[in-house]
Design a binder for these strands. Structure first.
Length: 794
RNA sequence: GGGCGAGUGGCGGAAUUGGUAUACGCGGCAGACUUAAAAUCUGCUUCCUUUACCGGAUUAUGGGUUCGAGUCCCAUCUCGCCCACCA
């Protein structure tokens, strides 16, 4: 060879890795283990995206880094394959999702291999493979057995285009996350996982995680714990009562009305002959409105039910209204209106002329100038509580409510239970059947998997049932001799990805989802990398981890030790890459046009800090190619020197790259390698220089580095450095006068350790003197560690 | 509206604990090699002034703390993300 030919080198090494399988992880090995994974991809028809390459390359870089330190590395790979795109494609083309998925996986695998990833390919998984989803169904049944998978009928987000319900986090600005159409509310009986049972633990353990603060805050806000009280209000002239949730029971005396959400079941019992028509019309209208319409109309609306409840604190009758600013799914779906101290209640009361009673006095020194004061202060107009501080009253009134038997302390969460039913074909069938009375029964574990049948017509309809309902053969099932009908809903795709991190540790087990011994050996996952799903997936895995720990299948309660949340790669114009804009960079094109995978990988790690978005640059990638080309030239096309001129620089580089890797500063690690190569071009390189260079380069450009190491006859064990060599004999001392840099003086290292000596040398310097002569030296600050002297003159 | 984060050359970015701002790369300029171009190699490249030296300014803006601030504090502006009637 006479010049760097990346495609040739890469083909050679990929073939060798395919044959020798050097990336196989070993169960129960004595070496320290390291389990890394990326969020597994949905294999789309478009193939790998440069965003995938960034994500996978970060994981690969670390996997190889730890492998070179002789750790037992597990770096698996898989595909998250259930979901709407494959199904919609099937509806359009008639090609089955099974077939499309297989084609796409084959393509993804081929492309991932072209990038030279150090993947243990024997552990590949695919969520739509019956071998896999059999165990997703098994997981569901464990939750079902413990009462953590349950059915409930209430209003759900419904996408009229995709004809399926959606979970909260799948609704973005009132629109479906897949098709973008506005969602509606529809009353349906649906399956849920009771994630709220773990709300406190999910919240409390967030702080202990080595995750980005941004994600941790998002999860905390999502869970949204708030402490308050439930208070019961008697309905005037009837034996009934309405319970509200409030975080401010100390304002109970100021409650002059009550408001129910339009979805509230009690409304029909509260209306009178006079109000029935108006209330029903209002509720019907509110439910019909899309979420966007509801939000657009900031003006408060509402209607009086005709009934009154009794404020238990004042004993006064207060009117009960219906208004859509009260949410059905939070608290009790009913709110006590305190217009003096809540902005929303204030707007409502002002609009409908309801009385406003102040019960908390704003402190005199308060700078709060909002129309209604929502802070703490002295209690007034509250009978026996007058004169107390509001915070004090909050505790006391809880006791009082409890004594009266009409209220209690209560913790409420913003997070709702996880809606998991989907009325779509291409998902994991829910392993449930119904008897003739409509009661749900678990499919016995020995009848798993409930196979997704091949059908001809995937089209969903407005019936609220998936296309599976049309398969008579699928619908019929016999359990314990009793004929039953199968559940036709499939599971939300997030269920499939809530346990795959443990399946990776035991991917071919046909007796259980995973062997706890293997999962406990490898997991929790040491490093997990992705750029999406800040709450949903990352909260659901935590939930399942806690559940399966409780069930004895795992001996840890948090599934992911360290989370790396990588940024996106945008088009050169800074906009999101998209087919319709025609600005997509295809990673395989980049490789094939001659740059090769090593350049692509290294470039994407060099492009900027891994956790920030970056714009692709067609020019800058050439710089990385030139750098690798120079590495190649040093080994294959340049004469080696025999002296050891670069020993200090070499050790310095080894240290810098190692430390940068531990900090995940991939971009500066590459920069350090570039500097080292520039130095070697200047001074000439000996064999040791080149061996260290190749070793440090290997996590980034594994093919080229392997080629270099083979040529040099060296192993790939990560280099160490000698701190002693990094201490120079002579150092550059920086002298500032009044904080301004005035001189740089070469001094002996031992002199730079001695503050007194530093001061002497600095003051004696000719150049420094020109700034100090004729002036009074007020103070001299000499810092040995930074070799810096600052002279303050007047 | 609330919460969080960020603003550094022509561009992507570096500066690890408050201590030499602008590493590395792109782009640009000049030179070497070449008949020529590409490739490659070498040098220069924050801005102002200057042939050059010297000097001055500079990390969104204004103030503060400090011997010393890109880094800490306060205010303002701009951008990004998340949540958004959660009682």
């Amino acid at each position: 060879m006479s010049h760097y030919e990346p495609l040739k080198i890469e083909e050679k090494w990929q073939k060798r890795w395919e044959e020798e399988k050097p990336f196989a992880a070993k169960d129960n090995d004595k070496r320290p283990k390291m389990y890394l994974a990326e969020m597994f991809p949905y294999p789309s028809g478009a193939g790998l995206h440069v965003g995938h390459v960034r994500n996978f390359s970060i994981v690969d870089c670390l996997a190889r880094f730890y492998a070179q330190q002789e750790m037992n590395v597990l770096r698996p790979f898989g595909y998250d394959t259930f979901g709407l795109p494959a199904e919609n494609y099937a509806i359009k083309t008639g090609i089955s999702p099974q077939e499309v998925t297989k084609t796409n996986i084959d393509n993804f695998r081929k492309q991932a291999k072209r990038l030279g990833y150090a993947i243990d390919w024997s552990r590949e998984i695919n969520t739509s493979d019956p071998e896999y989803y059999k165990w997703t169904q098994w997981c569901f049944l464990q939750l079902f057995k413990k009462g953590l998978a349950y059915q409930a009928e209430n209003y759900q987000w419904w996408c009229p285009v995709d004809q399926t319900v959606l979970a909260n986090e799948q609704v973005e600005n009132g629109c479906c996350w897949r098709c973008g159409h506005e969602v509606e509310k529809k009353k349906m009986k649906q399956w849920f996982f009771k994630i709220t049972a773990y709300a406190d633990e999910l919240l409390d353990e967030i702080d202990s995680l080595d995750w980005p603060e941004k994600i941790k805050t998002m999860q905390k806000n999502w869970i949204g714990r708030s402490e308050g009280a439930e208070v019961e209000f008697q309905i005037a002239g009837s034996g009934g009562k309405i319970t509200v949730f409030t975080t401010r029971p100390d304002t109970l005396f100021g409650s002059t009305f009550m408001v129910l959400a339009p979805e509230n079941e009690m409304i029909k019992d509260l209306v009178t002959d006079d109000t029935r028509e108006a209330v029903e019309a209002y509720c019907k209208d509110a439910l019909k409105k899309s979420e966007i319409e509801r939000q657009e109309n900031k003006e408060k609306t509402g209607v009086f039910t005709g009934s009154y409840v009794i404020n238990p604190a004042t004993g006064k009758e207060i009117p009960v209204w219906v208004a859509d600013y009260v949410l059905a799914g939070y608290g009790t779906g009913a709110v006590m209106g305190v217009p003096a101290h809540d902005e929303r209640d204030n707007e409502f009361a002002t609009k409908f002329n309801l009385p406003i009673v102040k019960v908390i006095e704003k402190p005199e020194n308060s700078t709060d100038d909002s129309k209604c004061y929502a802070g703490e202060g002295e209690v007034i107009n509250s009978g026996p509580f007058n004169g107390k501080q509001s915070s004090e009253m909050r505790e006391e009134i809880n006791d009082w409510l409890e004594q009266q038997g009409i209220g209690r302390k209560k913790v409420t969460y913003r997070m709702r239970d996880w809606l998991i039913s989907r009325q779509r074909y291409w998902g994991c069938p829910i392993p449930i059947a119904y008897d003739k009375d409509g009661n749900p029964h678990a499919i016995p574990e020995d009848q798993l998997p409930v196979m997704l049948p091949k059908i001809d017509d995937y089209k969903p309809d407005a019936s609220g049932r998936s296309a599976l309902a049309k398969s008579e053969e699928f619908m019929k099932v016999t359990i314990d001799g009793e004929e039953m009908t199968r559940e036709t809903d499939t599971l939300d795709g997030y269920a499939c990805s809530s346990w795959y991190l443990w399946r990776y540790t035991d991917p071919h087990n046909d007796k259980m989802a995973w062997d706890p011994k293997k999962a406990n050996f490898w997991a929790p996952t040491d490093i997990y990398c992705g750029g999406d799903h800040a709450v949903a997936h990352l909260l659901y895995v935590r939930f399942w981890c806690k559940f399966f720990a409780d069930e004895g299948y795992l001996n840890f309660r948090e599934p992911i030790k360290k989370l790396l949340y990588n940024g996106y790669i945008n088009a050169p114009d800074g906009k999101k890459m998209s087919k319709s804009k025609g600005n997509v960079i295809d990673p395989l094109d980049v490789i094939n046009q001659g740059y090769g995978a090593d350049t692509l990988r290294t470039y994407e790690l060099f492009i900027g800090p891994y956790n920030l978005d970056a714009a692709w640059s067609t020019e800058a990638i050439g710089g990385v190619y030139r750098f690798l080309n120079r590495c190649w030239t040093l080994v294959f096309d340049k004469k080696q020197i025999t002296e050891d001129k670069n020993i200090v620089y070499r050790h310095k580089t080894a240290k810098k790259v190692t430390e940068d890797m531990h900090r995940n500063n991939f971009n500066t690690a590459v920069a350090a390698l570039m500097e080292f190569v520039n130095e070697l071009f200047k001074n000439g390189a000996n064999k040791e220089d080149l061996v260290v260079l190749a070793k440090l380069l290997k996590p980034f450009a594994p093919h080229l580095a392997s080629e270099m190491l083979e040529e040099l006859g060296a192993d790939d064990i990560w280099p160490k450095w000698d701190e002693k060599l990094l201490v120079a004999d002579e150092v550059e001392m920086v002298v500032q006068v009044n904080g301004k840099l005035r001189a740089k003086i070469q001094v002996a290292a031992e002199d730079a350790e001695d503050a007194k000596k530093m001061e002497e040398i600095a003051l004696a310097d000719e150049k420094v003197k020109t700034y100090t002569d004729g002036k009074e030296v007020v103070k001299v600050i000499a810092i040995a560690k930074t070799h810096l002297v600052n002279i303050v003159v007047k």
